[in-house]
């Protein structure tokens, strides 16, 4: 039996997931909910907790050139995400800030390497930030996405208005959040990064908003299935 609490990188939502009957799976240096068993198939909204997966931020005036020098695809266009060759994402939040997300296999070596290789002596005017500690990460998908988000967010998130790889940094359910649209296998997926200390509140808000659409928590296996198309 896998104990999520034993992992140093357990999700801030592990108790909530356990309540819904999560089945755990070991993944690199952490434990993720592979599936969340609850009666009734997922309705029009599926919420996946990706918080245990690695992620890393960089900040500073020289961030974009520093990322490009490391072979990361990124341009200085705020609120735009860039898909990487390995399926990961580089979120460009501002002229001098990025967050790097891995693909759904959650391989963290590359990110760990980026953090370890950073040296202040290089004077690149950028510095790493451990976004795995600061931000919880939820992926929300499903047919009812725009309808559901219109209840908790003032931004027009309809697919024809909010293109793939767009980012909006706004207030969602009264919390500051970074919302990125990054479609997986032709399916619209919103990646949400929010303060990890309030992750449970935020997750409950999402579930509350999703309730009328039959929304529920699902495991990573389900999201990975959509990756296959």
């Amino acid at each position: 039996m896998i104990d999520p609490a034993a992992s140093a990188y357990r999700s801030p939502l592990y108790r909530r997931l356990a309540t819904d009957g999560a089945v755990w799976r070991e993944m690199n240096d952490t434990v993720v909910a592979a599936s969340v068993s609850r009666r009734g198939a997922g309705g029009d909204i599926q919420i996946t907790d990706l918080s245990p997966l690695p992620r890393l931020g960089f900040k500073g005036r020289g961030t974009i050139p520093a990322m490009q020098a490391r072979g990361i695809i990124a341009e200085a266009t705020p609120n735009q995400a860039f898909r990487q060759a390995d399926g990961g994402l580089c979120l460009v939040l501002g002229a001098g800030e990025v967050i790097l997300l891995p693909n759904l296999d959650g391989q963290g070596e590359r990110l760990a390497q980026l953090e370890a290789d950073w040296r202040i002596e290089d004077e690149e005017r950028t510095y790493p930030l451990r976004r795995r500690d600061s931000h919880a990460w939820l992926a929300v998908s499903g047919k009812a996405l725009p309808d559901m988000f219109s209840k908790i967010c003032a931004i027009d998130l309809r697919p024809n208005k909010f293109a793939d790889l767009s980012i909006t940094q706004t207030s969602i359910a009264k919390m500051s959040a970074i919302l990125t649209r990054a479609d997986v296998g032709g399916k619209t997926v919103f990646h949400l990064l929010v303060d990890s200390a309030a992750a449970l509140y935020f997750c409950n808000c999402l579930l509350d908003a999703a309730a009328e659409f039959g929304g529920r928590l699902v495991g990573l296996n389900e999201l990975q299935k959509s990756e296959g198309g």
């Binding site: 705020p78 609120n79 003032a154 931004i155 909006t168 706004t170 207030s171």
Partner: peptide, 17 residues
């Protein structure tokens, strides 16, 4: 709600400011 336009992020609810 009042709307204010952030020069970077565009028009948003005043409660975000």
């Amino acid at each position: 709600m009042k709307i204010l336009t952030c020069p970077i992020n565009g028009p948003r609810n005043i409660s975000e400011f």
